[in-house]
Nucleic acid binder design. Structure first.
Lengths: 110, 110
DNA sequence: GCGGTATATAACCGAGGGAGTATGCAATGG
DNA sequence: CCATTGCATACTCCCTCGGTTATATACCGC
């Protein structure tokens, strides 16, 4: 999965809203459509895109489909962002601090 | 600046490539176009979009225009990502044992 | 000045994709 | 069984936007 595809998915406010709503927990198509003011087919279409990109997983329950948020695509964005963080995290503005951060990262990875 | 607009900018591989190239330091339009295989007008148009969204700033030097990466939009993405990080980061030790255990349980179910 | 360079912008075109409508289909519960 | 519910898909319309071409503007060296 290329990260630009992830950005493309999030570029649409409707899809971003779905992702944000799913942070609260799994939801069905009808719930999402109702909460976000989308028609049911449109919600289904967006969810299809989200599913194809790994943003969500589906679980069937009778006629209902429970969509759940998956971490991987957002994690990819997080990783893509990594080499830019020095631009706003002032703890790294000195060379010594960079090494310090690397050491901390090692520890955090357990 | 809405974060979905930031995502929209990065959704295009060409613009994402410009951003990545500018991580190495400022560059002129011609340099960027040459390095990324874009026509000059296209590079200018993408840079216009990037400028309108605060991704880059420009400095005039004779006929040259030096474009430089600005942190703010990417920082916005970083902030937007914040409430999702618990999904893949294990650093929940500060939230108490109960939440920590719940998160671990979630991960193991995958 | 004049040619050459570097960039921005306008005009135009074509494809892609978001949104609506209609339909198909499976599972449900009465 | 049959009407209803919940969802997915096909089809269509149409507008946005990426990309090319052409042109305008500003600045340099000579």
């Amino acid at each position: 999965m290329v990260v630009s595809a992830v950005f493309e998915v999030l570029a649409l406010p409707a899809r971003q809203a779905i992702v944000e709503r799913l942070r609260e927990g799994p939801a069905t198509v009808g719930e999402l459509a109702g909460a976000l003011g989308l028609s049911q087919p449109l919600a289904s279409k967006h969810l299809r895109v989200l599913r194809d990109c790994g943003f969500v997983s589906v679980r069937a329950d009778a006629q209902r489909r429970w969509y759940e948020l998956r971490p991987e695509p957002l994690r990819e964005v997080d990783r893509w962002l990594e080499p830019y963080r020095w631009m706003w995290e002032e703890r790294l503005d000195r060379l010594g601090d960079r090494l310090d951060a690397m050491a901390r990262h090692e520890n955090e990875e357990k």
